[in-house]
Nucleic acid binder design. Structure first.
Lengths: 196, 196
DNA sequence: TAGGCAACCGGAACCTCGCTCCGGAAAGCG
DNA sequence: CGCTTTCCGGAGCGAGGTTCCGGTTGCCTA
């Protein structure tokens, strides 16, 4: 949305070469550190991994949320685009909803600590929260509406609420073999079903 | 379990009077600060509220978890004891389970930030996590077993998993009018129902 | 009642971490 | 080649958790 292409095609001259290089380096370093230590790893660690000063991080990504969004943007987009695709390819809207939620859970569970940081109360992460919501709530709404229209689920559940519920259930899903977030999410989706 | 009565009746002489007084004061102060600022309020705030030094807090409650447990012990006990009672007084085990979970949700939702801190990954809060689990998982197991035996729910859900799921759903339930944890927990419990 | 010894108290000090700020370096341009 | 603009690095500040030790005070004994 703002990074290395400035609206037009190739390279806007608004950024110096070293700056662009550093941004790239930072993204890679952050991704590596996130995998190793979770998304709440100390800023200094990321700076060290990238071989730059902390100032450089804050210049390119004013808040940690910006950095996280930049690192995971591709995957979130993929998830958003999967919604309509599943709706088109699945037997029923309810099945599509189930698969889509599954995919979202997969994403969250494999990103150490991401789900925990998605909470709105987590001050300083509003950008992150907003991005996820903006991008995914409409998709979820579409799926929910379709499933409601087909009569498979009882209506009245807000997409926002569902997304937050699923996100919450994914917190701490790694690092605890006794806890299976996927299982509980399945139960939640099952509970949506029209009792008929 | 260790505090002011040492197994027997009144006052074990193992503690000096001022120490006992301070412990009491701290409990009150902590409760007040927890209500005002959540369970993650700065230690110094609690010390100030109690009018003691921070050292005194750490002496009586080595970890924050110990303090939280001490503050909420009564209510957790009440919740644990409500399990069998509900089982005896409700129409069906499933109804008892629903009511019990409701009560637990009420408890969590009204304690600002408690649910968030119940995560096992939250290092330094292991004591808290362990206490809740030790006390409540057996109760939950009993309810779950009864409901499974009566054929109302499909078996196979671990009480630990359910407890964590409910706990997770309660995270951030205050401070966000768009999110209704109770609603989602209901859905989860509904999903437990035998599809028949 | 006075003396002495633990137990206990308070808060200064230290550490980690997020974030800011500015002197210096380097890129791009004429 | 030198000037201007942009960018870089990391020292430094504030906030919060935790430790540690000199001074204080309850409590027991003589």
């Amino acid at each position: 949305m703002q990074a290395r292409e400035d609206g037009a095609g190739q390279a806007a001259r608004s950024k110096r070469a070293d700056a662009r290089r550093n941004e790239e380096t930072l993204l890679d370093a952050a991704a590596a550190v996130f995998v190793a230590s979770g998304v709440e790893a100390p800023v200094r660690d990321i700076a060290a991994e990238a071989g730059v000063g902390v100032g450089t991080i804050y210049r390119h990504f004013p808040t940690r949320a910006d950095l996280i969004v930049a690192v995971y943007r591709h995957q979130v987009e993929a998830c958003a685009e999967a919604g309509p695709a599943l709706l088109a390819s699945s037997a029923t809207p309810y099945a599509a909803l189930g698969q889509w939620v599954d995919q979202f859970v997969d994403f969250l569970v494999t990103k150490h600590g991401l789900a925990a940081v998605l909470q709105p109360e987590n001050t300083g992460f509003d950008t992150l929260h907003a991005y996820f919501l903006d991008r995914l709530v409409p998709v979820c709404t579409q799926l929910l509406d379709a499933a409601a229209a087909s009569g498979e689920i009882r209506p009245g559940l807000d997409a926002y609420e569902l997304m937050r519920g699923v996100g919450n259930l994914c917190i701490g899903a790694d690092s605890d073999p006794r806890y299976n977030a996927r299982h509980l999410v399945e139960l939640l989706i099952a509970g949506l079903r029209r009792p008929d």
